[in-house]
Structure formats: structure tokens, C-alpha cells
């Protein structure tokens, strides 16, 4: 817009704003039991789909692939395989201080993988650490000293 009445040096205004809304996410019976098992029994449970027979971990109310309710609860092993991972090396607001490792682990007995932090990895050299984790290493579930019924009650460590 070019207008003789408009000065060329008009100051462009930015208006501050925020975007905070409070929610209470209902975890529902299935995830609530999954978290209760973490907290009370320190074990990771999956639910099995009666159609494709996969043991889904973490526990799901229904199988997204078959679109049927899952039929049974079963615990999985404490050890598993680190399938894919990333090492977050830059700082982002609201995130833990870098570097840290996130990965998906297939626990023994499970047919799907679960996301969590991978701790205890030597991250002094990010590239060396990355290359070493490409071998799909075995990991073990480690529970926090204080559990509160959240996914962060446990993490994985290299065996």
C-alpha cells in the first residue's frame, strides 16, 4: 500500500500475546491401568489384539489397525531392543537440557515399540554416540526411585 499520507517510517507494531489453556486429559481405564502397573508393580503391560494377535505396548484400548477392542493384558520383558533413536543436542524451551536420547524400544514379548528416554549413554561425542547406537543395542527398563504413574516413571539404559 503506497499512500502519500502514510509516512515511510511508520513503526511496525508487535502485540504480545500468550496461548495458555489448561486441560485435564482423561487417560481412561486402559492407560490408567498401564500407569498403575508401572507405579504399583513396576512392570510394563501390553494389551493383545484378538484379531492380529499383536501385543500392543503401551497398552491400548483398541487396535488401530484392526479397529477392534483389545482382549487381554500381558506383561512384557524388562529388556528389549532399541529400534530407532535420536540424540537431541540443541536446547529448546520447555524441553530438558541437551543432550539427551529419545528412542523407541521393542520390549521382549511385545509386537510394537514404546517411546522413552535412553539414559546412561556417553554423550561426550555426539557423533560417536550416534554411531554406536545404530546397532540396535539391547536395553533394560529402569524405574525411577519415585514413581507417580506417568510415562516418565521409567527410562531405558544400555545393557
Amino acid at each position: 500500500m503506497k499512500d502519500v499520507h502514510m509516512p515511510n517510517d511508520v513503526e511496525l507494531i508487535t502485540i504480545p500475546g500468550n496461548w495458555n489453556f489448561d486441560y485435564r486429559y482423561f487417560a481412561g481405564e486402559t492407560a490408567s491401568r498401564f500407569f498403575a502397573e508401572l507405579k504399583n508393580s513396576r512392570r510394563i503391560m501390553g494389551t493383545r489384539c484378538g484379531k492380529c494377535r499383536r501385543l500392543l505396548v503401551p497398552a491400548r484400548t483398541f487396535c488401530e489397525a484392526c479397529y477392534v477392542e483389545t482382549v487381554s493384558w500381558e506383561p512384557v520383558g524388562e529388556e528389549g531392543t532399541l529400534e530407532v533413536f535420536t540424540i537431541v543436542a540443541a536446547a529448546f524451551p520447555g524441553m530438558p537440557p541437551p543432550p539427551f536420547v529419545i528412542g523407541y524400544v521393542t520390549l521382549d514379548g511385545a509386537d510394537t515399540s514404546i517411546a522413552n528416554f535412553i539414559k546412561g549413554v556417553d554423550l561426550s561425542d555426539i557423533h560417536a554416540a550416534g554411531k554406536s547406537l545404530l546397532s540396535r543395542p539391547r536395553v533394560r527398563t529402569v524405574f525411577s526411585a519415585e514413581v507417580q504413574g506417568r510415562i516418565t516413571d521409567f527410562h531405558f539404559e544400555l545393557i
Partner: peptide, 13 residues
């Protein structure tokens, strides 16, 4: 928000 948001996932990760 139930199973994965706490793991600090992002579009980049």
C-alpha cells in the same frame, strides 16, 4: 498427552 508428550518429542525428533 497420555503416553508420549512427556518424552519431549518434537517434529524434528
Amino acid at each position: 498427552p497420555i503416553y508420549e508428550r512427556d518424552i519431549s518429542l518434537s517434529t524434528l525428533s
